[in-house]
Design a protein around this nucleic acid. Sequence first.
DNA 1: TATGTTCAGATTATCGATTTTTTTAAGTCT
DNA 2: AGACTTAAAAAAATCGATAATCTGAACATA
Lengths: 226, 226
Amino acid sequence: MTAIETEISGRDGSATHKAYHRLREMIVTGDLRPGEKLKIDTLRARLSTGASPIREALSLLTSDNLVERIDQRGFRAAEISASNFTEILTLRCTLEDLALRESIAHADQQWEEAIVLAHHRMQRAKADKKADFEVLHKAFHMTLLANAPSPILLKFCSQLYDLNIRYRYLAGSALDYQKRDVSEEHSLIMSTAIARDADGASASLLRHYRMTGDFLAGLLGDGALG
Amino acid sequence: MTAIETEISGRDGSATHKAYHRLREMIVTGDLRPGEKLKIDTLRARLSTGASPIREALSLLTSDNLVERIDQRGFRAAEISASNFTEILTLRCTLEDLALRESIAHADQQWEEAIVLAHHRMQRAKADKKADFEVLHKAFHMTLLANAPSPILLKFCSQLYDLNIRYRYLAGSALDYQKRDVSEEHSLIMSTAIARDADGASASLLRHYRMTGDFLAGLLGDGALG
DNA sequence: TATGTTCAGATTATCGATTTTTTTAAGTCT
DNA sequence: AGACTTAAAAAAATCGATAATCTGAACATA
């Protein structure tokens, strides 16, 4: 079977893979609430698949810190807390700072162009109010780091990104963080990165994260979430 | 059933748990070589358990970067490389530095005593040439960090520790890293940590890692491993 | 000779059923 | 009533079997 035929037949990965991505999305977007019991049978019915793929997907999500495993009592969606959020924010700032500097240190034309492209796609999606804005927003941020020759570090950053964005979803898209001039911030990050200005890029990136972070931390402190 | 009864009855977790720990150990110690194909059926027979626990254990190990999943072709033990080793060492230095400083910042008597105890147990095991030296060595290092109020960071450190120690096992215990005066280094780390000397503790910890690291990196460069 | 194709054997992924464990709720005793 | 036991129901963990997929060798083709 060729790649094209594969595409047509819709076999875009195993049942486990699909369940993994679907469940991850449901947890990150808050469709499955923090602390909620994740019953195999319920999920099996909801995603119309077997129990094995669900179990395996939940296992994988456990290691992403999105699902907690309780001894012999199954799984639940990870809890949220102010301290957890603060930890994520702090770690993210440390690790992304590291990754961004490494990425810039290995800058080349290809990377530069990838950033411009990712930025454009994100802007376009935002203007069109496309649903895939969030996907492209993550892609933009990961592209900034992608040149760091450090796959483990990038994996950590990706995980932390997802843990963080979950809080944003839980705060509700109503609390539209886009009201702030995020576009301006993104542009600044892009231009400093492309200019190989490591200090400038890092500073603007961390400011970007901390502004959103402080905002969400405030909500958490008020008990507005959960 | 109380915790003590559980202990006695030997029911120390599910089949998946046991398989997970056993497989992790086999990979870390090099019993399963880097890149080796991990066939479900072979492992099932070897650990005398079912296929489901094996699959689930391998899934979990995937997220620890100890096992790689190949599309629809099963699992294999993670590959090793000089760049991978360097990355682990670098990340470890960064993250443990962070964790150690946080740990010291939250120092209290209980933590102090835990360190002394962990250190003593490790020394004792080493003198007796006990097989559990490695377990206690890890325990000592993790205890140093354990006071950092940052579970995700500690998890990362634990993962990186295991990834790193794997290289040491692969280099062979023949290349006894204990020939160096590691005891002296451990003592220095302990005393500086207990003295709440964050800079001193961090410096001695990182020196400890880098010395072992440089030694192993040399071996890797010569192609003595793999 | 190099390239592509087919087919058996091996292996993985998934399913349905069984076993074990936990939870719930009712009943019993003090 | 409150605490303890026991029985039934629910759920998770595991197993055995089946379906889907991959691998590699033998063969055909250019």
